[in-house]
């Protein structure tokens, strides 16, 4: 189910106008694609935050434009708290789109009881899927992951109509031996040896040769 976003036209462009827009609780957005002209939009920040929190990638725009759009990219502030800008692309019902989907681990690996740690190597993957069936996430069951074993992308069950856009031999998650702690290796005092200075030795040798 696509989230509905109420959009308004944004006529005042530029840095200061956009800042004023953000201060008023709106987020600037751009709609483009399919050979049509791009449209500058303003969307309420709460609606965008809600859509992003629910993991929606497909949204229904209502207001100055009434069509489906895909969230192509999201710009965040430095703290990852507020959305600064949104890129939306027009999509048609039967269209297939390339998209990045999160990989989520489920269950408990038996390798943990054997003293291993789970190393989640790949957190997201590029897939192509119909726009009406974009998966929120790909779930991987770790209940059979023993110590020293790994799960590759080929072993991940994909929803119907979804294909990988990357090589299937990439490791997604592995159970490896726990790294050894080296707590005792800390220098007790602030006195430290100095690092090598690049070019220092070469210069010294050159000056010696000149002499």
């Amino acid at each position: 189910m696509a989230e509905k976003l109420n959009v308004a036209a944004r006529n005042a462009l530029g840095t200061s106008n956009t800042r004023r827009l953000r201060n008023a609780g709106q987020v600037p957005a751009e709609l483009y694609g399919h050979g049509a002209e791009n449209v500058h939009l303003a969307i309420p920040a709460e609606e965008i935050n809600s859509a992003i929190r629910h993991g929606s990638k497909l949204v229904e725009l209502a207001g100055v434009v009434n069509e489906s759009a895909l969230i192509r990219s999201v710009q965040w502030d430095a703290f990852g708290a507020d959305v600064l800008h949104l890129d939306l692309t027009r999509v048609k019902a039967g269209q297939r789109v390339p998209i990045t989907v999160a990989i989520v681990l489920r269950g408990e690996a038996p390798g943990l009881r054997a003293g291993g740690v789970v190393d989640h190597v790949l957190h997201q993957v590029e897939v192509e899927c119909p726009v009406i069936a974009i998966p929120d996430k790909l779930e991987i069951n770790m209940n059979s992951l023993e110590l020293g074993q790994s799960i590759t992308l080929d072993q991940v069950e994909l929803p119907e109509g979804t294909v990988l856009l990357v090589s299937g031999d990439q490791i997604v998650v592995q159970c490896v031996e726990a790294p050894v702690d080296d707590d005792g290796d800390v220098a007790a005092s602030g006195d430290v040896a100095e690092p090598e200075v690049i070019g220092r030795k070469a210069d010294d040798e050159e000056s010696a040769e000149d002499d």
């Binding site: 430095a78 430290v192 090598e196 200075v197 690049i198």
Partner: peptide
Amino acid sequence: MALMPKRVKHRKSQRGRIKGNAT
């Protein structure tokens, strides 16, 4: 051993200013 670079171009650096947020 505390963390520090293995090789540096200059032993000493000026203090500098921390301006803006991390990008």
